[in-house]
Simulated assay, not measured.
Amino acid sequence: MVSEDSLIIKALWFDDLKAYEYSRPIYGELFDRTGEEEFLFREMRSALLSRTFINESIDRLELWDKKHPDTLDAKRLLIPLYLTANQGERAQEESMYLLERSQQVMDLELVSNALLYNAEFERALQLLKRVYDETLHEGILLRVATIMDEYTGQRKEAIALLETHRRMHISSQSVYFKLLKLYMKENDINGLISTYEALYELEGDENYIRKIIDAYVYKRDLEGAMAFLEKHREGHEDILYDLYKVTRSYEKAILLVDYFYSQDNDAKWLAEKGILLFEQAEDKDDKTMLKEVISHFEKAIEGGVDDSIYLNYYGYTLIDKEFDINKGISIVEDALRQQPDNTFYLDSLAWGYYKQKKCKKAYELMKKVIEREGLEQEEIKDHWDAIQNCK
């Protein structure tokens, strides 16, 4: 016969391997040999951890419990065994017995499991709140928040609880992610933003920057997005620049363009500055301003810029302001060589023909534009009205 010491060593070895289905029968044999409750309880724990021989384990523990009815450790094992065997009523009976005799934190949590199984959410919630108040354990807090959100209709209270915890205690990602989930359910964009900002401050993950900006854009708070990026500008200047343009914050955009150009000497920034200078001007016919705009575009083209967007913008400006119509048409034609079907470029060319009094060519080209784009855009409509009256 194998000695008890050898069996103990073997069972502990299986436990270390988390092979509880193998340690369970060994502890059972040790209990049968010695009658020591420690081996019986280890047998029950192994059954629970391996989820094997649950009913057989219940029978064995119940038999022992009848002989030792005041042993709370037996109750602590019977409750999860009953729950695993889907015997909710019996689990609750044992839970109530345990609750009458113990207010230990671990017992309150154990009893709450039986109450949750039996859909007594309010009672379970009260016990878990007591456990959390005593331990400040995040796992308990997250369970409390889930119950409040999904079962007791207290989502806002759950958010308040989580917010208080994260502000007063060092918190893991799980608390922040739970908050994000609840804020999303509430469609609380400000809550999402504040949580993502806190996560960014905590971890410095650049992905949170994008999520913060997306949230600001979703709520149409571009000013808020800019204010945030101005505090966290490094590495995100491109997004900030786009926001400056969208919000027509031209002075700030020009400063940023100058910064970009000082960093990489890319001639496209000269073209960008030309656009900004023109868009910023209150008087679009100001000759001094137009000369400066043209100077920037000329330098950009000399520097190798041939993007059709810049070419069309520059060419159209030369045409519309009658600064140099022939040159403007030539530049727009360069843009059309890159994108021959671009209706906005065709509109620019038609406008050039109109300015040259080539009415038939302007009309035929503009007709194609409105066939594709319609007359919803004001500039296209103005051009069409003018070209129809061209003589």
Rank of each mutant, 00 (worst) to 15 (best):
M1Y: 08
V2S: 10
D5E: 15
K10L: 14
E21N: 06
P25Y: 09
F39R: 03
M44A: 15
R45P: 01
A47K: 08
L48R: 03
T52A: 10
I54L: 13
S57W: 04
S57A: 13
D59W: 01
R60K: 15
L61P: 05
E62P: 00
E62M: 06
T71C: 09
T71S: 13
L72W: 06
A74Q: 02
R76D: 14
L78E: 03
N86D: 15
E89I: 11
R90H: 14
L98I: 07
Q103V: 09
D107V: 11
L108M: 15
V111K: 01
E120K: 12
R123S: 12
R130F: 09
D133Y: 05
D133I: 01
G139K: 02
G139T: 11
I140S: 11
L142K: 02
D149A: 05
D149T: 06
G153E: 12
R155H: 02
A158S: 05
L161Y: 06
L161R: 07
T164F: 05
H165S: 08
M168I: 00
S171V: 08
S174M: 02
K185C: 06
D188V: 03
G191P: 04
L192T: 13
L199Q: 07
Y200M: 03
E203G: 02
G204N: 06
I213K: 02
I213P: 01
Y218R: 12
K219V: 08
A227R: 13
L229F: 09
H232T: 07
H236V: 03
L240Y: 07
D242P: 00
L243S: 07
L243Y: 09
K245L: 15
R248L: 14
S262I: 03
N265I: 05
I275A: 04
L276R: 04
A281S: 15
K284S: 12
D286R: 02
M289N: 11
K291A: 14
S295M: 03
S295V: 00
E302W: 02
G304Q: 10
G304R: 04
D307I: 01
S308R: 11
I309Y: 14
G315N: 08
Y316F: 14
I319R: 01
E322H: 03
E322D: 08
K327A: 10
S330Y: 04
I331Q: 05
D334G: 00
A335Q: 11
Q339V: 14
D347K: 00
G352S: 10
Y353W: 09
K358W: 05
K360I: 11
K361N: 05
K367V: 12
E371R: 09
E373V: 06
Q377F: 09
I387F: 12
Q388H: 12
N389A: 14
K391A: 06
